[in-house]
Amino acid sequence: MALTVSYFAWVRERMGVSEEVIEPPAGVTTMADLVGWLAARDARGALAFAEPARIRGAIDGVMAAPDAALGREIALFPPVTGG
């Protein structure tokens, strides 16, 4: 299934794109799976996702835990620092 993944802050800088459409293999079903797959996919993914504990995510507009099942629109980003 094709997913649209968007990246923010230093995750975006390390990935070199703000958004991409990807088609991960069938075994990738959770947020943690996706982060692991992106880290193994290429050098930029390895750089962006070297520390999964520092990655947060949202699925179809809602903040999601690492074990959450994937949706169509995924956002991956560092812990937030607003205010």
């Binding site: 923010f8 802050a9 230093w10 949202a58 560092p78 937030v80 620092t81 607003g82 205010g83």
Partner: peptide
């Protein structure tokens, strides 16, 4: 809003 909202400072 420092912990719950999608904002990142550079």
């Amino acid at each position: 809003l420092k912990t719950d909202v999608m904002l990142w400072k550079r």
